[in-house]
Amino acid sequence: HAATELTPEQAAALKPYDRIVITGRFNAIGDAVSAVSRRADEEGAASFYVVDTSEFGNSGNWRVVADVYKA
Rank of each mutant, 00 (worst) to 15 (best):
H1M: 08
H1F: 08
H1W: 07
H1P: 08
A2N: 13
A2S: 13
A3I: 11
A3H: 03
T4A: 09
T4V: 14
T4D: 06
E5S: 08
L6N: 03
L6F: 03
T7W: 04
T7F: 06
T7E: 04
T7Y: 04
P8N: 08
P8G: 11
P8V: 09
P8K: 15
E9G: 09
E9S: 11
Q10E: 11
Q10A: 08
Q10L: 08
A11Q: 03
A12I: 09
A12K: 12
A12C: 12
A12S: 10
A12V: 08
A13D: 10
A13L: 14
A13K: 14
A13Y: 11
L14C: 12
K15C: 14
P16S: 05
P16V: 03
P16R: 04
Y17H: 04
Y17P: 05
Y17G: 02
Y17N: 04
D18F: 10
D18V: 08
D18P: 02
R19F: 04
R19K: 03
I20D: 00
I20W: 07
I22S: 00
T23Y: 14
T23N: 07
T23I: 15
G24D: 03
G24I: 10
G24P: 01
G24N: 01
G24M: 04
R25F: 14
F26A: 02
N27T: 12
N27L: 12
N27Y: 09
A28W: 10
I29V: 11
I29Q: 08
G30P: 06
G30M: 11
D31T: 05
D31V: 05
D31S: 06
D31R: 02
D31K: 04
A32M: 14
S34G: 09
S34V: 13
R38W: 06
R38P: 00
R38E: 06
R39I: 11
R39M: 11
R39C: 11
R39A: 11
A40C: 07
A40R: 01
A40W: 02
D41A: 15
D41G: 15
D41L: 15
D41N: 15
E42Y: 10
E42F: 10
E42R: 10
E43S: 11
E43H: 14
E43Y: 15
E43K: 11
E43W: 13
G44S: 05
A45T: 02
A46I: 10
A46Q: 12
F48H: 00
Y49N: 03
Y49E: 01
Y49C: 08
V50S: 00
V50C: 05
V50N: 01
V50Q: 01
V50K: 00
V51W: 04
V51R: 04
D52S: 15
D52I: 14
D52E: 15
D52Y: 14
T53Y: 15
T53N: 06
T53K: 09
S54R: 12
S54Y: 15
S54H: 14
S54I: 15
E55I: 13
F56A: 08
G57M: 09
G57T: 07
G57R: 06
N58P: 12
N58K: 10
N58Y: 09
S59H: 09
S59V: 10
S59F: 09
G60T: 05
N61E: 15
N61C: 15
W62S: 04
W62C: 07
W62P: 01
R63S: 08
R63C: 13
R63Q: 09
R63K: 10
V64A: 01
V64D: 02
V65H: 02
V65L: 05
V65R: 03
A66F: 15
A66I: 13
A66H: 00
A66D: 01
D67P: 01
D67A: 05
V68E: 00
Y69F: 11
Y69Q: 00
Y69T: 01
K70S: 08
K70G: 10
A71I: 11
A71R: 08
